[in-house]
């Protein structure tokens, strides 16, 4: 059975690219446009991995991760954040918020899949 990935990003372009890279790799992809939408989608889905952006309207990546981690049902879902920099400070903040790992944008589809493999059971 295919693994499901939930992608959360307010950029249509990014969502399309994630969809392309992930479906090519055989994953089933579910999408959301920002943190609030992401939490809504989670009420009906149990993804194997979540990939989320940080800068989003309504609820940003940090808020979203905290929201996910505070829900028992999704506490153990691996979450990867998309970041445009290998900025140690941002990575640290994401980790403290509960992120499992990170992917640097612009992302290389191969690296994206490798990162997912490292966290998805």
């Amino acid at each position: 059975m295919n693994k499901t990935v939930l992608t959360v990003d307010d950029s249509r372009t990014m969502r399309d690219m994630l969809m392309l890279a992930l479906s090519d790799a055989g994953y089933r992809v579910v999408q959301a446009e920002d943190g609030v939408h992401g939490l809504e989608v989670l009420s009906g889905e149990t993804p194997d991995v979540i990939v989320t952006d940080i800068n989003m309207p309504r609820m940003d990546g940090f808020g979203f991760i905290e929201g996910v981690r505070s829900d028992d049902r999704h506490r153990t879902v691996p979450i990867l954040v998309l970041t445009t920099e290998s900025d140690a400070e941002k990575k640290d903040r994401a980790r403290r918020a509960g992120a499992t790992g990170w992917i640097v944008k612009p992302f290389d589809p191969v690296k994206l899949v490798a990162a997912i493999r490292r966290v998805a059971a």
Partner: peptide
């Protein structure tokens, strides 16, 4: 202010790809 930042951030991200 955030929206303005995000607008440029988004453009940068996509442009990089």
């Amino acid at each position: 202010v955030n929206a303005v930042f995000r607008a440029v951030h988004s453009i940068k991200g996509g442009a990089g790809a």
